[in-house]
Simulated assay, not measured.
Amino acid sequence: MKIIPYARQDVNDQDVSAVIEVLRSDYLTQGPLVERFENSVKSFCHAKAAIAVNSATSALHISCLAMGVKSGDIVWTSPISFVASSNCALYCGASVDFIDIDPLTYNISAMALEEKLISSALQNKLPKVVIAVHFSGQPCDMETIFSLSQKYGFKIIEDASHAIGAQYKNLAVGSGQYSDITIFSFHPVKIITSGEGGMILTNNLELSKKCQLLRSHGIESISGELNLHPSKEIWNYQQIDLGFNYRMTDIQAALGLSQMTRLSDFIAKRRTLAARYDILLANFPITTPWQHPDGLSAYHLYVIRLHTDKLKKGQHQIYDELRDLGILVNLHYIPIYLHPYYVKMGFKRGYCPEAEQYFSQALSLPLFSGLNAEDQELVVASLKQVLQ
Rank of each mutant, 00 (worst) to 15 (best):
V75C: 03
S258K: 02
N227E: 15
V130A: 00
H316M: 15
N12H: 09
I145G: 00
Q9I: 06
H46P: 05
H229G: 13
E225R: 15
I131V: 15
L148C: 05
I219P: 02
I3M: 07
Q14A: 14
L65F: 05
I279C: 14
H339T: 12
E196D: 13
A18C: 07
V16L: 08
K42R: 15
S185H: 05
F368P: 00
I74C: 06
P188G: 09
I3Q: 08
R271F: 10
E35Q: 15
P293S: 12
V173G: 01
H46W: 04
I108N: 01
Q259Y: 04
D97N: 14
Q138R: 09
H217T: 13
S55E: 06
E377H: 13
D265L: 10
N39P: 07
F154W: 00
Q239K: 15
E196W: 14
Y27Q: 12
N236A: 13
D159C: 11
I286W: 04
R305M: 11
A268M: 09
R276G: 05
P366F: 05
H217E: 12
I145S: 00
C88S: 13
Y302L: 06
E225Y: 13
G68S: 11
R270K: 15
R8M: 09
N227V: 15
G295T: 12
D97C: 06
A89D: 02
Q361N: 12
G370T: 06
